[in-house]
């Protein structure tokens, strides 16, 4: 974009992909600086006085959820690759994922709650896989 006069501009198509991101970046910069100016002291106070993350959170449940999800996402396409285009990667990985996550979230683990978690982990992915992949022919991993 080049300015011919304050209001007149010529847009070069081959570089037009940069115009809007540049404008937005400038506005973001200005907003960021104004936040620092008006709230800087508050932000500084929070940073210096507050307890540092991840202190005071439920480590097992928070990081457990993340770790399980990453494993789930990594495993799905790999297992799916063994049975291409059947959606079985999704199906076979969802069962242990659901069970592990349900158990992790449980506050009282006893026979009954574990049975419910297990039944749910078996039934939910089966229903979803059957309806979507088999009935509706939707591609799953």
């Amino acid at each position: 974009m080049s300015f011919d006069s304050p209001f007149h501009v010529t847009v070069d198509f081959s570089s037009s992909h940069l115009i809007f991101p540049t404008i937005i970046a400038v506005i973001l910069g200005v907003l960021f600086i104004s936040i620092l100016i008006t709230r800087g002291s508050t932000i500084l106070a929070t940073v210096t006085n507050g307890t540092w993350w991840p202190a005071g959170i439920d480590h097992a449940r928070f990081f457990g959820t993340l770790a399980l999800t990453v494993i789930y996402f990594l495993a799905m396409p790999s297992v799916g690759d063994i049975f291409p285009n059947t959606g079985l990667g999704f199906y076979l990985c969802s069962i242990p994922y659901l069970f592990a996550l349900s158990t992790l979230f449980l506050r009282e683990r006893n026979r009954r709650t574990l049975m419910i978690a297990g039944a749910n982990a078996l039934i939910a992915p089966s229903v979803v896989w059957y309806i979507l992949s088999e009935l509706f022919n939707i591609s799953l991993p």
Partner: peptide, 19 residues
């Protein structure tokens, strides 16, 4: 969903399909 009836049939032999 062209294979609706086919998949209903397949559902009966679900394990067979997997295998």
């Amino acid at each position: 969903m062209t294979g609706l009836f086919k998949s209903i049939a397949a559902a009966v032999g679900f394990t067979a399909m997997v295998a």
